[in-house]
Amino acid sequence: MTIDILLFRTTLLAYALATGLALADILWRRPALGRHGRVLLWSGFGLHSLSMISRYLTTGFPPLSSLHESLSFFAWAIIGTFLLFHLRYRLAVLGAFVAPLALVLMIFGSAVSTATTAPPPPLQSWWLPVHVVLAFLGDAVFALAAVAGCLYLLQERMLKKKKVSSLFYRLPSLQVLDNLNYRCLTIGFPLMTLGIITGAIWADRAWGAYWSWDPKETWALITWFLYAALLHGRLAVGWRGRKAAVLAIIGFVLLLFTFLGVNLLLSGLHSYSALGTY
């Protein structure tokens, strides 16, 4: 086992433990466990970063091309985004929902081939890491928006049904969750837009065309329109609350489909099999 895979496995373990502790925190009201869980999440994030660095040093190109590497980077970005938002807004409870998401991506990532293969020569360019990093950072921020959306719907339902519980009291207020939705949108949307633009530039270098309507490009564009509509609705029409939460969740489902579904179900230029590693 190479060092980066060892680090990856350790990270997975740290995320799994952190998930357990965060869930124990909200289910049985044990804030001390939650704090330990966040320490583990930080350490896992550190190990995860080391894992990617060591993979970069051994192969000599950014670890962003195989399916394993993409899943790993996506999980890293989600955890990193959550930790940053937590530092700023103190949203401990979100950890119990974000950590499992990252954990699932990590488990998926360890189930697929972890072999390293250099991307084919036409794709070897600095535009690749820039495009991929921007796209995934945007996805990670939208993941957080979707988690906030789920919590919003959960809490809204409890408020409407007038059913309180200990979980109800642990959730952040509707206002805080709605603000989070808005903030994620204003950060994630520019990242996603830049991701698509850099992707187009890279496509021009690699294949000689900015846009070739392969399934991934099409779905990314659909997703982009949905977020654009949400942002417009929020800013101009006064969409908020439930509607914004639902759209953030739909948006994230589309994102996941663009990321994974397109590769697994449809074939095109972006599929990892084209890169020969999946």
């Binding site: 809490q155 408020l159 109800f168 009291y169 959730l171 952040p172 207020s173 509707l174 206002q175 805080v176």
Partner: peptide, 9 residues
Amino acid sequence: ELARKIFGE
């Protein structure tokens, strides 16, 4: 308490 759950501050 309910008002705080809706509005936060």
